[in-house]
Nucleic acid binder design. Structure first.
Length: 583
RNA sequence: GCGCCCGUAGCUCAACUGGAUAGAGCAGCGGACUUCUAAUCCGCAGGUUGCAGGUUCGAGUCCUGCCGGGCGUGCCA
């Protein structure tokens, strides 16, 4: 992913509440050990990570390696000193079961059983809120996404944008931001005029079926259209549908000299369709921002003047140019065309200035890869106007290819052979649609295999997660039938089976996973994580029985299973995917 | 030409922001249903992380140069 600007996070603030409890404790212990070894450099903070290999403990620090230069000693020797001082402290046996020295100088810590029981207790107590963090500290974020002009139905490409933006927004909410979702559009440009003309031509053909026709396009793109149809008009069937509705409502009474009513009717209908499509995906915008307001308020022209005053804009060939060479670009770019119409850059700058003036601490834009080159100008623009461009972050996602029968599905907006988002959802389902858009890094070109997506089987990863959830629900139902009470206190320290402990450890990672996914704007981190949870639960399920065990153990395991269900439910709800109780 | 992204198992992709033996799924092979859901599980096999250098205790990750693919590079958005 490209981050044009630094995120407002600092590396030291993204640890989750749960994990940071242990990390903060161990940090204190290590610093205390270092103090008696002659002191660490100012501002030193030991780094921690979770080892991939369970033999390396539950949490590992490379502090000794970080300090090799400072102490001018071998990392292993430093680590030995630290370990010996830690043992003298001593470490709290209720939290840390063991500290070991390994490899080139890693300090490996093993959690005590009591610590795991305590963590599980906290997960249960947090319930539907488990995973929420305070990282964002109540700062306000605006996520702008979809932002398709209302010229046609949303396509598969928009789908990735929509799902990505919505989920990034939800992730930010969970990590403590106050988030608004916004849709930016322009209903005044050339695109919309052609849309209106396209509808009008179809309407005229409805009124007068004998109207002359013509052919547009060439090769296999040839299409027969009514004479007034614009050369580069919109070809989709929805255009004729809208014309048909106008004809139903007004007969032949509409004044075809004026394109405005046709444009407005088209916009209204298409926007309604877009909102309905988004609603199917569970997406609801907080606001729609019409580019036109930037003209009505004169804002765009004020910006041109501001640039002129700063000597960043000048006239040439009848156009107004933006001195992007000042920001390291090879050439200046046009800000206002010789027709007097601004290029997209100008309103974009105005729009971002507006967002920042509305008090947002973080403005995220979700863009397809084809917008990559346009954005530096906007950032340079608002920066030179005195705004803090570091508050703006752009998420670029790569394109989607649909695969059917092992072959890419060819799509072209011109030929109107694109697959709409609605058609995709009709074919594979809403949950699968969301999940497939979220299971890969935004940075990678997404191959959406329709055959795989449709298959309601083990090949389809989304069902694996839902199945684990449904399975737990089934156990809870069964437990209720047999009179096993899930609520109340249970002795969680009875959970000493390796599969139980692994499951708890995985579940503990949810807040941290959410923070990282939010910080990096990478929802796939969460979907990958949820698979780990499902795997850990399934292994626990395979190795440990619940119903039929001794009552205190059964109750503890039932609470563990219920906590796993909650973790899956919380995660899936962030991804916007349903959590069936039966499958 | 220039800018950005990508290159990891046969295929689709991960890899906790520089850590220890690079991991999943699918496909392949071999096993497991008198059990709380088999839409499941267990095992086997699969790799010079595109190539070549560099930085350091340590590189898939950072730097440089190549090779290959995608997207841009507009008085379109």
């Amino acid at each position: 992913m490209v981050h044009w600007a630094t995120s407002p996070y600092s590396p030291s603030t993204h640890e989750s509440d749960l994990q940071s409890g242990m990390q903060a404790y161990l940090t204190d212990c290590i610093l205390s050990a270092l103090a008696s070894m002659g002191g660490a450099p100012e501002g030193f903070a030991p780094e921690f990570e979770q080892p991939a290999n369970p033999d390396h403990g539950d949490l590992s620090s490379n502090a000794a390696m970080q300090l090799a230069r400072h102490f001018r000693k071998a990392p292993r020797a430093i680590a030995e000193d630290i370990v010996s001082h830690l043992r003298d402290l001593p470490l709290d046996a209720a939290r840390v079961a063991a500290v070991e020295l390994a490899g080139p100088g890693f300090l490996n810590f093993r959690f005590a059983d009591a610590h795991l029981a305590n963590e599980l207790q906290q997960i249960i107590a947090a319930g539907a809120d488990f995973g929420r963090t305070t990282t964002g500290n109540g700062k306000r974020a605006l996520v702008e996404f979809v932002s398709a002009n209302p010229t046609g139905p949303l396509t598969v490409g928009h789908g990735r944008n929509a799902v990505l933006g919505d989920t990034v927004a939800t992730l930010l909410e969970w990590s403590g931001f106050e988030v608004d979702r916004e849709y930016y559009f322009n209903d005044a440009g050339r695109q919309m005029r052609i849309l209106g003309e396209s509808v009008r031509a179809r309407y005229m053909a409805r009124v007068s079926p004998d109207i002359p026709t013509k052919q547009i396009g060439e090769g296999d793109e040839i299409l027969t259209v009514p004479e007034p149809f614009p050369e580069d008009g919109y070809r989709g069937a929805y255009i004729d549908d809208i014309a048909g509705e106008l004809f139903e409502a007004h007969g032949g009474n509409l004044d075809t000299d004026d394109v405005e009513p046709f444009k407005r009717a088209a916009e209204k209908q298409i926007f309604a369709d877009i909102e309905a499509t988004l609603a199917r995906l569970g997406i609801h915008m907080d606001s729609f921002f019409n580019e036109r307001t930037l003209y009505d308020s004169n804002r765009v022209w004020e910006i041109v003047e501001a640039f002129r005053e700063k000597d960043l804009a000048y006239d040439k060939d009848g156009a107004v140019w933006f001195k992007t060479t000042e920001f390291g670009k090879e050439a200046d770019t046009v800000l206002v065309k010789s027709t007097g119409e601004p290029t997209y850059r100008l309103p974009d700058i105005g729009y971002h200035a507006d967002k920042l003036e509305r008090g947002y601490d973080l403005c995220i834009d979700i863009f397809g890869a084809d917008h990559i080159a346009t954005f530096p100008d906007v950032l340079d623009g608002i920066r030179s106007l005195g705004y803090d461009a570091d508050k703006v972050d752009v998420v670029i996602y790569q394109f989607v290819t649909l695969i059917r029968g092992g072959e890419p599905v060819k799509m072209s907006t011109r030929k109107a052979t694109y697959v709409t988002l609605d058609e995709l959802m009709d074919e594979v389902g809403d949950d699968v649609t969301r999940f497939f858009f979220l299971m890969r890094s935004p940075n990678t070109h997404l191959e959406f295999d329709l055959d795989l997506a449709k298959e309601a089987s083990d090949k389809n990863p989304v069902f694996y997660l839902q199945y684990a959830h449904a399975r737990i629900c089934s156990i809870l139902r069964k437990a209720e039938e047999t009179g096993l009470e899930r609520r109340g206190t249970a002795d969680l320290s009875l959970l000493d089976h390796p599969a139980e402990q692994t499951l708890v450890k995985v579940m503990m990672d949810l807040p941290d996973t959410i923070d990282r996914a939010a910080e990096n704007r990478e929802p796939h981190r969460l979907s990958n994580y949820l698979r780990e949870v499902a795997v850990a639960f399934t292994q626990f399920y395979g190795q440990c029985r619940i119903i039929g065990e001794d009552e205190s153990l059964a109750k503890a395991r039932l609470q563990l299973a219920d906590a796993a269900r909650q973790v899956l439910a919380n995660g899936l709800s962030i991804l916007g995917i349903s959590t069936p109780e039966r499958m």
